[in-house]
Write a protein that binds this DNA or RNA. Sequence first.
DNA 1: CTGAAAGCGCTTACAG
DNA 2: CTGAAAGCGCTTACAG
Lengths: 361, 361
Amino acid sequence: MQSDAPARPTLADVAARAGVSASTASLAFSGSGPVSDATKERVLAAAADLGYAGPDPRARSLRRGRSGIVGVVLEERVRAAFLDPVKIQMLDGITEGIAPLGAGLLLLTDTGEAGGNAVGIESAPVDAVVLVGCSPRLGVAVEVLRRRGIPAVAIEGAAGEGVPQISIDNRAATRRGAEYLRELGHADVALVTLPFDADRTRGPLTVELIAASTADTASERLAGAREVFPDATGRAAAASSIEEGREAGLALLADPATRPSAVIAQSDLLAAGVINAAEELGIAVPAELSVLGFDGIRVDGLQHDLTTLAQPSVSKGRAAGEAVVQLLAGEPGESVCFTSTLHVGDTTAVPHPARASRATR
Amino acid sequence: MQSDAPARPTLADVAARAGVSASTASLAFSGSGPVSDATKERVLAAAADLGYAGPDPRARSLRRGRSGIVGVVLEERVRAAFLDPVKIQMLDGITEGIAPLGAGLLLLTDTGEAGGNAVGIESAPVDAVVLVGCSPRLGVAVEVLRRRGIPAVAIEGAAGEGVPQISIDNRAATRRGAEYLRELGHADVALVTLPFDADRTRGPLTVELIAASTADTASERLAGAREVFPDATGRAAAASSIEEGREAGLALLADPATRPSAVIAQSDLLAAGVINAAEELGIAVPAELSVLGFDGIRVDGLQHDLTTLAQPSVSKGRAAGEAVVQLLAGEPGESVCFTSTLHVGDTTAVPHPARASRATR
DNA sequence: CTGAAAGCGCTTACAG
DNA sequence: CTGAAAGCGCTTACAG
């Protein structure tokens, strides 16, 4: 029986009804002090009578100095970020990593300042933050958080003083994949890269594009490939998606005269698109074209076992979460650089004889 | 120049340094009162000197009674939820809908009670909550939130007193799609459904499975299909994914003697999988098999224009967000039931002559 | 095991 | 335009 908009009962109300002090009532709920069972029961009963649902988290967090919330800063809008399976896995890993905290995950983006009273990175009630991605804007975010005294962890880039960095061996891993292709006998290798800039320019891999890169991941993976195939060129995709990979693939494979014998794609989604393009053009994978991916995700619907550099996305997220836990415990957070492993699937093979002879000529 | 762990400056410190009262300093930051430019500048300068990054959101939210955070309750772990493009689009829509609030989105799951001091639905510092999905557990969530006095909005199910419900015409829409197939001349129609229960049982569509359903969406779409094809049977998938659709498709299409002329899939992902299965079996879509999906998402990598019931996922999310805004303004939140539209793509056609004659015999 | 007191850091009527 | 005061609802030393 409660009226339409009753004032929510407070802990003080519950204490009064139970005939105890507020301190005791508080203890009965938090369990962080000695309370007799009888008293505890009385408090809980009073709470039930009053319809008290537990301590107000806002007051609790002011008093405790902790909100129990960890922010995740994405460099793009929610939808875009979650189209990337790697990011979703990382998010899942972060959840695991911060589990000991019992904290919730607050989604934040670094797109522009949160206007007015909006909850942005400058004012979110978070105990710590995980920065995901390597946008140059994240540098600003790090500075804002530093001023606020909020610990931060960066996944892939944007680290600063006191900001643990969780990363993978983008360059070395790609080099290893490229070496594998070379060992198979490939020499004509084309690249399909992730976007290099905030504009997500799609098209040929030009010197200008590469020089203007603000995307560490794309640049590092490119560098790794060129350690093995210095003259390798190709196309930049506008996003990591199957469709973008397909378009790049069509552009790269359409002309038999210039067709490479292998493609190094900077993500599995892009690789899957290249394979689709090849199949549309009647080019057999891997007999006539080898395709190497990056990520090691399972591409839903792809009927190949993609050869790829498998990166531990969930572990990356978990490590970031663990670093958050360390930071909140006052310890220095641990930076980790994970190693990706070459998974040899069925999308790479020795080059087609005609190609091989050309390559080794 | 600050020492290792300096006490964070407070608004009072800033006020003192600026030689004004705390009230005035507060006004200078919030802009919600008249402050002379000179004073405001002095306060901001003092803040800059002290490295004060703005009012503490915890104190602010206690005082204001608002945290600026909206919770989104998912019925599964983050990774599972975000594998579903429809949910991601809804999340994006929610973001749009609550934009006027400037609130952040806190990810919550209804899996079990948050133990100890964990931030769960019973203790998250949220101003309102959007319940996504139709898990029976969401009923409990609604009750907890009601006791806490936190407004809630439900997308697809679990609504209760005072909980606006955002839904779509699952049954009627599916019926329309089925009617379209019948008009084309189909009579042998098989179904590939979403999971019916929390166990996500994969397999034939048995009477028991259907009777034990706890999934409104699957049940409603099934009912709609059976309004047109009362005897239609088929298979339940364990999840909405291309791979699950493919497996169900293989099971349904492998035997030429029992092969249907059309498949009604309860999601686009499942439909895409059925198409993959058909192509693997050398069955041409739509010449030899028509496939109808549900959702109207763009399936990355699918080279067909899927015939499907397009539901406005983003609008659903947006409507939920708008209902949250209404609720927080003290207005009754508006329930909305959206209409899905039949999008005729290139995956449906008149049945193959041999089939048609059989069907109309 | 229980209670009285202080205070977390802010914002908001209310005076002036 | 500015200031003094109260209080948001809790938790935590500190006594007893």
